[in-house]
Computed example of a mutant assay.
Amino acid sequence: MLAFDSTRLQWYLPTTFVQIATGRGPIPEATISAIRKDFMGYADDVLKIYCPMWCDNHWFLVIVDLSQKQLVYLGSLRSPTARSKRRRQIQKLAIFLDDLLDDCAWYANADTDKIECNEFDIKEPEVAQQLPESNDCGVFVAQWMIMYHLFYDYDIEAFQFVTDYRRMRLAIDMVLKYHNDNRMETVEAALNYWRSFTIAPW
C-alpha cells in the first residue's frame, strides 16, 4: 500500500526481502527483479529504506536512514536476551544491501556515491512498548512505516500507541484502498454476508 503511493524517495520493502537478506533461503533472480520493480528504484535519491524484520516470533522495523547515516531499530517489545540476535540480523541486512547496491546498474548517474550502510551506527530510539501478552508487534511496524516518513525525530511518541481505532483503520485501509485488486469482491462478500442476517420487510 505504501509502495503504491511512494515517490521512491522511500523504499518500503516487503518481508520477503529481509528473509532473503538474512539468509533464510536462496536468492531467486526473478524475486529480486520483482521486488526492485515494485518496491525500489534507482538508489541515487533514496532517503530511507523501511525493512520489516521477523526474528523469534517478533516483528520489528529497521529504517535505513541514508541522510543521517543510521540503522534505526524500532521494536515494540524490547528484550535484553534478544537484543544481540536482532542486532546481528540488522547487520546481515546492511551487508546484503551493500552487496546488492554495489552494482552500478542501481544508479542513474555514474558519479553517485554507492550506498554503504554497513558502516552506519545502529540507533535505538525510545518508542512505545506493547503489552507483553499482546500480538501487536506487526501493527506497530505498520504504523511506524505509515507515519515515520513525516517526521525527522524518531523519538516522537504521540502517535505510537496502538489502539482499537488504529487496528481497525489499518485493516480497512489494507482491504479497501485501491492497491487491493480484490477490494470490490471483498465488499460484495461482506454485503452478502450482512444481507443473510437481514430480515426482509413484510
Rank of each mutant, 00 (worst) to 15 (best):
L2S: 05
W11N: 00
Y12L: 03
L13E: 02
P14V: 05
P14E: 08
I20T: 15
I20D: 10
A21G: 03
P28L: 11
A30E: 13
I35P: 03
K37F: 05
K37M: 01
K37W: 01
D38N: 10
D38R: 06
G41P: 02
Y42V: 01
A43S: 05
D45T: 01
I49D: 02
Y50M: 00
M53C: 11
W54H: 12
F60L: 02
S67V: 01
Y73M: 07
S76H: 03
T81F: 14
A82V: 08
R83M: 14
K85H: 13
Q91K: 13
A94R: 01
I95A: 11
L101P: 02
D103H: 09
A110R: 10
T112E: 06
C117A: 05
E124N: 09
V127A: 04
V139A: 15
V141H: 02
A142C: 11
W144N: 02
I146A: 10
M147W: 06
M147K: 06
L150C: 08
F151P: 03
Y152G: 05
D153P: 03
A158C: 07
Q160N: 06
T163V: 05
D164L: 07
M168H: 11
I172Y: 14
I172K: 14
K177P: 02
H179R: 08
R183N: 13
A190F: 15
T198V: 13
A200F: 10
P201I: 10
